[in-house]
Amino acid sequence: MSLTVDKPVPEQPAGRAAAGTGRRRWRPSVGRSIVIVLVGLFGVWTLWPMYWMLSTALKSAKEATNLSPTVWPHTITGANFHELFGGTLPFSTYLVNSVLTSLIAAAVAVLISTLAGYSFSRGGYRLTSAASLVVLATQMLPLVVFIGPLYLLLLRAHLLNTYLGLIIGYTTFAIPFGAWMMKGFFDAIPREIEESARVDGYSRLGILFRVVVPLSVPGLVTTGVFVFMNSWNNLLYPLTLVSSNSRQTLPPGLLQSFSGTFKTDWGGMMAASLITSLPLVIAFFLVQRSMVRGLTAGALAGT
């Protein structure tokens, strides 16, 4: 090809037009002040339990159970944290079990949700819409409804008291939600992009993993974090499906360890709760942007 074509006329790159407008000056007003006060109050309301958790975790056992409670610890102590990892409580085992089962459940759910969501979005088979509605319908039932049948199934499969049983339990409620969330993401990807890849010679699966999945990273992250959070926080399933202490996860582990009939170790419980909350708080801050996008994706489908 020796021929060249005319030089293009320079153009403004897309999206530049809106740039250049100055920032608005902030002006105080009564309305704004009310909003700020309300937001502040809401913030205190929301954050107070977390602060109380941190404060109690750092208090001595005596101060934590004092009849006139202190807002901040008068003497800061790390004893509660020491006790968690060095004491008789198998806290590290619970932590490892929680991390392991939640991570694997998130990975499995993301993989299956991606395949199912893509099929719901692009399948075009006669049963696609019916199948996707049935999957959605499972979300309308409360979690507790599944526990009986799930217990019997896992019992017959000899999967009670195993990581695998627990992971299967977590994914039963995670995959339907994940599939619908991924469908929302896939719906937003223009078909022309996939058709380009078809013209370029790629198969359906090739297109899914080389083109569609890279474009749906916010969706994958959102689904993954959502499943991880739900599994991590789940009390009911491990409490029912796992009886051995060596397979137990954090929520039932903590419940059983700290709340006794005659005495509750508030300091230890708060220290354990703090460590339990940390991975979720960190994960949420890392992905909050894509998570918000993920939960609202598809809301404007067709526009």
Binding site: P190, E192, I193, E195, S196, V211
Partner: peptide, 10 residues
Amino acid sequence: MVFQNYGLYP
């Protein structure tokens, strides 16, 4: 094929 909306891989 050249598509109406270009169909480039973003």
